[in-house]
Write a protein that binds this DNA or RNA. Structure first.
Lengths: 163, 163
DNA sequence: GGTGGATAGTTTAGGTCTAAAGCAATTGGA
DNA sequence: TCCAATTGCTTTAGACCTAAACTATCCACC
């Protein structure tokens, strides 16, 4: 008899008189629940989600990435990337090399240590996510994935309309 | 011919070799897109999402809330509530009153100014969310809402299993 | 009474993130 | 050629958030 606690929804009941807002609050609560869970587990390994994101982007760009490219790939600000990369460099997980062709720019690459670190974290991350969605069958996941695709399109359109 | 830009997905292509991770990344990108959009619009009015959340919770508890109750309602830490409420009090949007029955506790209530401020923000917030999901029809929204409900249950179960 | 936990909140140290200002290098014209 | 705009990145100021340590109070029980 495993009792399952429901994930709470912020403002449960309030604010949610409009269906669109109710949908948004549920979307938010699901994302937060997963994000906090993953965050907490990363913390248990001395890592953070933000740093993991940087390592992940670099892992698939063996040739290295410019800071700006990282910023665009991760959807975060330039200044944020600067901070993260400098700390990762201090920890020996990435190396920052100047770009001879353009002395403003620099190329960031994973070190061997960084690549190994990422491999370990990525495997764990996969397992955590698998565990969290384990109770949905393949079809339910497919439906959700598709529905999120529609939402994604709607958001893009909505943002394009009202600037 | 309105060209709609797609919302980018973090790590698009990478990391996403497992369906569960692909689902998670899409969920994350939708949530982030809405959250940043709302955040940006709030900023345009000199407000923030975190402060709005506090006001929303207080708006539906006319009798006031204790700090701890706020913390639980908003799913954020105690210290965070302390900061937010103290700043809101300084801005005259809430009032902090001691609870005679328990001198450790204090009751937070909206001021008239705070209630008016919330009303304005809430109406705008509704409209923004409506705009972002406008391109999904009622049935699609219902499907998504239901699918998120299943995810929510799966997450709760997954978290219960592996602590 | 007194005393040892619970409980309510605050503080502190540190990580995340952004917008905006600033610096340096590059590039595209006039 | 030269200079103005652009580009790549860093810095700064500030908002948000947390965990953990801390203070103050309450409460249950001997």
């Amino acid at each position: 008899m495993t009792e399952v606690l429901a994930i709470r929804e912020k403002h449960d009941g309030a604010l949610a008189d409009r269906s669109s807002v109710r949908l948004w609050l549920r979307l938010l609560s699901c994302t937060m629940a997963i994000e906090k869970d993953v965050q907490r587990r990363f913390a248990g390994r001395g890592a953070t989600l933000a740093r993991f994101d940087v390592l992940a982007a670099l892992d698939r760009h063996e040739e290295g990435m410019m800071m700006g490219a990282l910023s665009r790939a991760l959807l975060v600000s330039n200044g944020n990337v600067t901070q993260l990369v400098q700390k990762l460099a201090k920890d020996g997980l990435v190396r920052i090399a100047p770009l001879p062709a353009d002395r403003r720019a620099s190329i960031v690459r994973l070190t061997a240590k960084g690549r190994a670190e990422f491999a370990g974290l990525a495997a764990a991350h996969h397992d955590w996510i698998d565990g969290l969605v384990a109770d949905m069958d393949g079809e339910a996941r497919e439906i959700l994935y598709h529905a999120l695709g529609e939402l994604k399109r709607s958001i893009a359109k909505g943002q394009a309309l009202e600037p």
